[in-house]
Protein backbone atom coordinates (compact mmCIF):
# COMPACT_ATOMS: atom_id res chain seq x y z
CA UNK A 1 0.00 0.00 0.00
CA UNK A 2 2.82 2.30 0.83
CA UNK A 3 4.36 1.65 -2.53
CA UNK A 4 1.07 2.42 -4.26
CA UNK A 5 0.83 5.71 -2.48
CA UNK A 6 4.36 6.60 -3.47
CA UNK A 7 3.66 5.78 -7.09
CA UNK A 8 0.46 7.79 -7.21
CA UNK A 9 2.21 10.68 -5.58
CA UNK A 10 4.99 10.39 -8.08
CA UNK A 11 2.68 10.33 -11.03
CA UNK A 12 0.61 13.25 -9.76
CA UNK A 13 3.81 15.22 -9.38
CA UNK A 14 4.64 14.35 -12.96
CA UNK A 15 1.33 14.81 -14.69
CA UNK A 16 0.26 17.96 -12.93
CA UNK A 17 2.97 20.20 -14.41
CA UNK A 18 2.25 18.71 -17.82
CA UNK A 19 -1.43 19.42 -17.47
CA UNK A 20 -0.73 23.00 -16.52
CA UNK A 21 1.65 23.34 -19.42
CA UNK A 22 -0.93 22.03 -21.87
CA UNK A 23 -3.49 24.37 -20.35
CA UNK A 24 -1.14 27.30 -20.77
CA UNK A 25 -0.18 26.32 -24.28
CA UNK A 26 -3.83 26.18 -25.31
CA UNK A 27 -4.59 29.55 -23.74
CA UNK A 28 -3.99 31.60 -26.91
CA UNK A 29 -6.83 29.70 -28.55
CA UNK A 30 -9.48 31.02 -26.19
CA UNK A 31 -8.10 33.77 -23.96
CA UNK A 32 -8.18 37.44 -24.92
CA UNK A 33 -4.99 38.74 -26.45
CA UNK A 34 -4.11 40.94 -23.54
CA UNK A 35 -4.09 37.94 -21.23
CA UNK A 36 -1.42 36.47 -23.46
CA UNK A 37 0.62 39.67 -23.30
CA UNK A 38 0.30 39.80 -19.54
CA UNK A 39 1.24 36.15 -19.21
CA UNK A 40 4.30 36.73 -21.38
CA UNK A 41 5.47 39.42 -18.99
CA UNK A 42 4.73 37.24 -15.99
CA UNK A 43 6.66 34.36 -17.51
CA UNK A 44 9.51 36.71 -18.30
CA UNK A 45 9.75 37.49 -14.60
CA UNK A 46 9.42 33.82 -13.73
CA UNK A 47 12.26 32.91 -16.07
CA UNK A 48 14.53 35.63 -14.68
CA UNK A 49 13.67 34.81 -11.08
CA UNK A 50 14.05 31.07 -11.46
CA UNK A 51 17.34 31.37 -13.31
CA UNK A 52 18.51 33.81 -10.64
CA UNK A 53 17.58 31.29 -7.94
CA UNK A 54 19.38 28.59 -9.87
CA UNK A 55 22.69 30.19 -8.98
CA UNK A 56 21.99 32.39 -5.98
CA UNK A 57 19.69 29.94 -4.18
CA UNK A 58 22.10 27.09 -3.51
CA UNK A 59 25.32 29.13 -3.37
CA UNK A 60 23.98 32.03 -1.32
CA UNK A 61 25.78 34.52 -3.58
CA UNK A 62 23.32 37.35 -4.18
CA UNK A 63 23.84 38.46 -7.74
CA UNK A 64 22.60 41.85 -8.86
CA UNK A 65 23.67 41.23 -12.43
CA UNK A 66 20.36 40.04 -13.97
CA UNK A 67 19.81 43.42 -15.61
CA UNK A 68 23.21 43.08 -17.26
CA UNK A 69 22.53 39.63 -18.67
CA UNK A 70 18.96 40.45 -19.63
CA UNK A 71 20.20 43.68 -21.22
CA UNK A 72 22.84 41.89 -23.26
CA UNK A 73 20.07 39.70 -24.66
CA UNK A 74 17.90 42.73 -25.38
CA UNK A 75 20.76 44.46 -27.10
CA UNK A 76 21.73 41.47 -29.17
CA UNK A 77 18.19 41.32 -30.43
CA UNK A 78 18.19 45.05 -31.18
CA UNK A 79 21.49 44.84 -33.04
CA UNK A 80 20.43 41.88 -35.13
CA UNK A 81 17.01 43.33 -35.89
CA UNK A 82 15.01 40.54 -37.42
CA UNK A 83 17.51 39.45 -40.03
CA UNK A 84 17.72 36.01 -38.44
CA UNK A 85 14.80 33.80 -37.44
CA UNK A 86 13.57 34.47 -33.91
CA UNK A 87 14.86 31.21 -32.34
CA UNK A 88 18.35 31.99 -33.64
CA UNK A 89 18.22 35.47 -32.15
CA UNK A 90 17.08 34.10 -28.81
CA UNK A 91 19.90 31.57 -28.91
CA UNK A 92 22.51 34.17 -29.77
CA UNK A 93 21.19 36.50 -27.07
CA UNK A 94 21.45 33.71 -24.55
CA UNK A 95 24.94 32.75 -25.69
CA UNK A 96 26.15 36.34 -25.52
CA UNK A 97 25.00 36.51 -21.91
CA UNK A 98 26.52 33.11 -21.25
CA UNK A 99 29.92 34.29 -22.47
CA UNK A 100 29.74 37.51 -20.50
CA UNK A 101 28.85 35.54 -17.38
CA UNK A 102 31.75 33.14 -17.94
CA UNK A 103 34.12 36.07 -18.14
CA UNK A 104 32.62 37.99 -15.23
CA UNK A 105 32.27 34.83 -13.18
CA UNK A 106 35.87 33.80 -13.65
CA UNK A 107 36.90 37.31 -12.68
CA UNK A 108 34.72 37.83 -9.66
CA UNK A 109 33.56 34.68 -8.01
CA UNK A 110 36.50 34.83 -5.64
CA UNK A 111 34.76 37.86 -4.15
CA UNK A 112 32.43 36.92 -1.37
CA UNK A 113 29.32 38.27 0.27
CA UNK A 114 28.70 41.94 -0.12
CA UNK A 115 31.63 42.47 -2.45
CA UNK A 116 30.17 40.08 -4.95
CA UNK A 117 26.77 41.80 -4.61
CA UNK A 118 28.28 45.18 -5.29
CA UNK A 119 30.47 44.04 -8.15
CA UNK A 120 27.54 42.52 -10.01
CA UNK A 121 25.57 45.69 -9.43
CA UNK A 122 28.42 47.81 -10.75
CA UNK A 123 28.51 45.63 -13.85
CA UNK A 124 25.03 46.72 -14.89
CA UNK A 125 25.85 50.40 -14.56
CA UNK A 126 29.21 50.00 -16.26
CA UNK A 127 27.65 48.25 -19.25
CA UNK A 128 24.88 50.83 -19.45
CA UNK A 129 27.17 53.82 -19.47
CA UNK A 130 29.79 52.20 -21.64
CA UNK A 131 27.32 51.17 -24.36
CA UNK A 132 25.79 54.62 -24.20
CA UNK A 133 29.16 56.31 -24.61
CA UNK A 134 30.12 53.90 -27.37
CA UNK A 135 26.97 54.57 -29.34
CA UNK A 136 27.03 58.32 -28.91
CA UNK A 137 30.70 58.82 -29.65
CA UNK A 138 31.78 55.92 -31.82
CA UNK A 139 28.79 54.83 -33.88
CA UNK A 140 27.15 58.24 -33.65
CA UNK A 141 23.64 56.98 -33.08
CA UNK A 142 21.61 55.66 -30.24
CA UNK A 143 18.34 53.85 -30.04
CA UNK A 144 17.19 51.03 -32.27
CA UNK A 145 13.86 49.94 -33.57
CA UNK A 146 12.97 46.28 -33.18
CA UNK A 147 10.22 45.03 -35.45
CA UNK A 148 7.20 43.75 -33.57
CA UNK A 149 6.37 40.07 -33.54
CA UNK A 150 3.02 38.38 -33.15
CA UNK A 151 2.08 38.35 -29.44
CA UNK A 152 1.12 34.68 -29.40
CA UNK A 153 4.44 33.71 -30.95
CA UNK A 154 6.32 35.62 -28.25
CA UNK A 155 4.23 33.88 -25.60
CA UNK A 156 5.02 30.42 -26.97
CA UNK A 157 8.71 31.17 -27.16
CA UNK A 158 8.70 32.42 -23.59
CA UNK A 159 6.92 29.26 -22.53
CA UNK A 160 9.54 27.17 -24.33
CA UNK A 161 12.38 29.04 -22.61
CA UNK A 162 10.61 28.39 -19.31
CA UNK A 163 10.24 24.67 -19.99
CA UNK A 164 13.89 24.31 -21.00
CA UNK A 165 14.88 26.23 -17.89
CA UNK A 166 12.86 23.95 -15.64
CA UNK A 167 14.31 20.92 -17.37
CA UNK A 168 17.84 22.24 -16.89
CA UNK A 169 17.10 22.99 -13.27
CA UNK A 170 15.81 19.47 -12.54
CA UNK A 171 18.73 17.91 -14.34
CA UNK A 172 21.25 19.97 -12.38
CA UNK A 173 19.52 19.31 -9.08
CA UNK A 174 19.62 15.58 -9.52
CA UNK A 175 23.21 15.45 -10.71
CA UNK A 176 26.58 15.38 -8.98
CA UNK A 177 26.98 18.90 -10.23
CA UNK A 178 23.95 19.97 -8.24
CA UNK A 179 25.28 18.28 -5.14
CA UNK A 180 28.56 20.10 -5.53
CA UNK A 181 26.63 23.35 -5.78
CA UNK A 182 24.74 22.58 -2.57
CA UNK A 183 28.00 21.75 -0.86
CA UNK A 184 29.43 25.13 -1.85
CA UNK A 185 26.42 26.85 -0.41
CA UNK A 186 26.79 25.04 2.90
CA UNK A 187 30.51 25.49 3.28
CA UNK A 188 32.65 26.61 0.43
CA UNK A 189 35.98 25.76 2.02
CA UNK A 190 34.85 22.30 3.06
CA UNK A 191 33.56 21.65 -0.45
CA UNK A 192 36.92 22.63 -1.89
CA UNK A 193 38.67 20.25 0.48
CA UNK A 194 36.50 17.33 -0.57
CA UNK A 195 37.68 17.76 -4.12
CA UNK A 196 34.95 19.91 -5.63
CA UNK A 197 36.31 22.29 -8.23
CA UNK A 198 34.57 25.17 -6.55
CA UNK A 199 35.40 27.87 -9.08
CA UNK A 200 34.39 25.79 -12.07
CA UNK A 201 31.05 24.76 -10.59
CA UNK A 202 30.19 28.32 -9.61
CA UNK A 203 31.22 29.88 -12.89
CA UNK A 204 29.35 27.37 -15.00
CA UNK A 205 26.15 27.66 -12.98
CA UNK A 206 26.43 31.42 -13.11
CA UNK A 207 26.80 31.27 -16.88
CA UNK A 208 23.90 28.86 -17.35
CA UNK A 209 21.62 31.10 -15.34
CA UNK A 210 22.79 34.05 -17.42
CA UNK A 211 21.97 32.16 -20.60
CA UNK A 212 18.28 32.05 -19.73
CA UNK A 213 18.18 35.70 -18.74
CA UNK A 214 19.79 36.64 -22.02
CA UNK A 215 17.39 34.48 -23.99
CA UNK A 216 14.41 36.08 -22.24
CA UNK A 217 15.87 39.52 -22.96
CA UNK A 218 16.37 38.81 -26.63
CA UNK A 219 12.75 37.72 -26.88
CA UNK A 220 11.31 40.61 -24.89
CA UNK A 221 13.07 43.17 -27.08
CA UNK A 222 10.52 42.37 -29.75
CA UNK A 223 7.76 43.38 -27.34
CA UNK A 224 9.35 46.71 -26.50
CA UNK A 225 9.92 47.70 -30.13
CA UNK A 226 12.34 50.50 -29.28
CA UNK A 227 15.62 49.89 -27.49
CA UNK A 228 18.32 52.17 -26.19
CA UNK A 229 20.96 51.45 -23.55
CA UNK A 230 18.95 53.01 -20.74
CA UNK A 231 15.99 50.82 -21.59
CA UNK A 232 18.02 47.65 -22.09
CA UNK A 233 20.12 47.94 -18.94
CA UNK A 234 17.52 48.96 -16.41
CA UNK A 235 19.11 48.56 -12.95
CA UNK A 236 15.70 48.01 -11.36
CA UNK A 237 15.46 44.71 -13.19
CA UNK A 238 18.42 43.48 -11.15
CA UNK A 239 16.47 43.82 -7.95
CA UNK A 240 13.27 42.27 -9.26
CA UNK A 241 14.36 38.61 -9.19
CA UNK A 242 15.79 39.03 -5.68
CA UNK A 243 12.57 40.57 -4.42
CA UNK A 244 10.38 38.07 -6.20
CA UNK A 245 12.38 35.09 -4.95
CA UNK A 246 12.27 36.34 -1.36
CA UNK A 247 8.59 37.16 -1.71
CA UNK A 248 7.90 33.65 -2.92
CA UNK A 249 10.29 31.94 -0.55
CA UNK A 250 13.63 30.51 -1.56
CA UNK A 251 13.43 27.16 0.22
CA UNK A 252 11.40 25.39 -2.45
CA UNK A 253 11.66 25.23 -6.18
CA UNK A 254 8.16 26.54 -6.68
CA UNK A 255 8.68 29.48 -4.29
CA UNK A 256 10.34 31.76 -6.84
CA UNK A 257 7.79 30.73 -9.45
CA UNK A 258 4.72 31.72 -7.47
CA UNK A 259 6.64 34.68 -6.03
CA UNK A 260 7.38 36.05 -9.49
CA UNK A 261 3.90 35.27 -10.82
CA UNK A 262 2.02 36.90 -7.96
CA UNK A 263 4.42 39.83 -7.68
CA UNK A 264 4.16 40.60 -11.39
CA UNK A 265 0.41 40.14 -11.51
CA UNK A 266 -0.11 42.23 -8.40
CA UNK A 267 1.91 45.05 -9.88
CA UNK A 268 -0.10 45.01 -13.09
CA UNK A 269 -3.33 44.84 -11.14
CA UNK A 270 -2.47 47.79 -8.90
CA UNK A 271 -0.97 49.95 -11.61
CA UNK A 272 -4.09 49.75 -13.74
CA UNK A 273 -6.55 50.20 -10.86
CA UNK A 274 -4.74 52.84 -8.84
CA UNK A 275 -2.41 54.72 -11.17
CA UNK A 276 -1.77 57.46 -8.62
CA UNK A 277 -1.46 55.35 -5.49
CA UNK A 278 -0.14 52.05 -6.72
CA UNK A 279 3.38 52.55 -5.36
CA UNK A 280 1.98 53.36 -1.96
CA UNK A 281 -0.14 50.21 -1.90
CA UNK A 282 2.52 48.03 -3.44
CA UNK A 283 5.15 49.30 -1.03
CA UNK A 284 2.90 48.69 1.95
CA UNK A 285 2.21 45.17 0.75
CA UNK A 286 5.95 44.53 0.43
CA UNK A 287 6.67 45.75 3.95
CA UNK A 288 3.78 43.81 5.47
CA UNK A 289 4.68 40.72 3.50
CA UNK A 290 8.25 40.66 4.71
CA UNK A 291 7.26 41.30 8.30
CA UNK A 292 4.54 38.69 8.49
CA UNK A 293 5.90 36.17 6.02
CA UNK A 294 9.64 36.07 6.67
CA UNK A 295 9.88 32.84 4.71
CA UNK A 296 7.83 34.14 1.84
CA UNK A 297 4.66 32.72 0.38
CA UNK A 298 6.05 29.21 0.66
CA UNK A 299 6.46 29.61 4.39
CA UNK A 300 2.94 30.97 4.69
CA UNK A 301 1.46 28.10 2.71
CA UNK A 302 3.36 25.60 4.77
CA UNK A 303 2.14 27.19 7.98
CA UNK A 304 -1.44 27.19 6.74
CA UNK A 305 -1.26 23.56 5.67
CA UNK A 306 0.29 22.61 8.95
CA UNK A 307 -2.40 24.26 10.98
CA UNK A 308 -5.16 22.73 8.83
CA UNK A 309 -3.74 19.21 9.13
CA UNK A 310 -3.26 19.73 12.83
CA UNK A 311 -6.86 20.86 13.05
CA UNK A 312 -7.96 17.70 11.28
CA UNK A 313 -5.92 15.55 13.59
CA UNK A 314 -7.45 17.27 16.54
CA UNK A 315 -10.97 16.55 15.31
CA UNK A 316 -10.44 12.86 14.56
Amino acid sequence: MDIARVISKRSSALWAPFLILILLASLPLCAPQYTIILLTTIFMYIVITVSWTMFSGPTGYISLAPAAFFGVGVYTSALLGLVLPLPAIIGIGGLASFCLALFVGALTLRLRGTYFVMFTFGLVELLLHFVLWWEVNITGTTGRVVPTVNNTKVFYFMLIIFVILMFALYTIRGSRFGLALEAIGQNEDAAAHTGVNVTMVKVITFAISAFFMGAAGALMATRWTYIDPKIAFNPLLSFMPVLMAIFGGMGQLYGPIIGAAIFAYLEEFLITRFPYYYMLIFGTIMVIAIVYMPEGLVGLIRRLLKSSTEGRHART
Binding site: G60, I62, G113, F239, V242, L243, I246, F247, Y277, Y278, M279, L280, F282, G283, T284, I285, M286, V287, A289, I290, V291, P294
Partner: peptide, 28 residues
Amino acid sequence: LRISSASPAAFEGSSMLACFGLLFIIQN
Protein backbone atom coordinates in the same frame (compact mmCIF):
# COMPACT_ATOMS: atom_id res chain seq x y z
CA LEU B 1 13.18 41.49 10.73
CA ARG B 2 16.59 41.01 12.32
CA ILE B 3 15.15 38.87 15.05
CA SER B 4 12.98 36.77 12.76
CA SER B 5 15.70 36.19 10.14
CA ALA B 6 17.47 32.89 10.30
CA SER B 7 20.86 34.17 9.14
CA PRO B 8 22.62 37.46 8.40
CA ALA B 9 22.24 36.71 4.69
CA ALA B 10 18.50 36.19 5.14
CA PHE B 11 18.29 39.49 7.00
CA GLU B 12 20.12 41.21 4.16
CA GLY B 13 17.56 39.87 1.70
CA SER B 14 14.48 40.58 3.76
CA SER B 15 15.62 44.06 4.76
CA MET B 16 16.26 44.80 1.09
CA LEU B 17 12.68 43.87 0.27
CA ALA B 18 11.42 46.02 3.12
CA CYS B 19 13.55 48.94 1.93
CA PHE B 20 12.16 48.55 -1.54
CA GLY B 21 8.71 48.82 -0.05
CA LEU B 22 9.79 51.94 1.83
CA LEU B 23 11.22 53.41 -1.36
CA PHE B 24 7.87 52.98 -3.07
CA ILE B 25 5.91 54.38 -0.15
CA ILE B 26 8.12 57.42 0.38
CA GLN B 27 8.30 58.26 -3.29
CA ASN B 28 4.57 57.98 -3.77
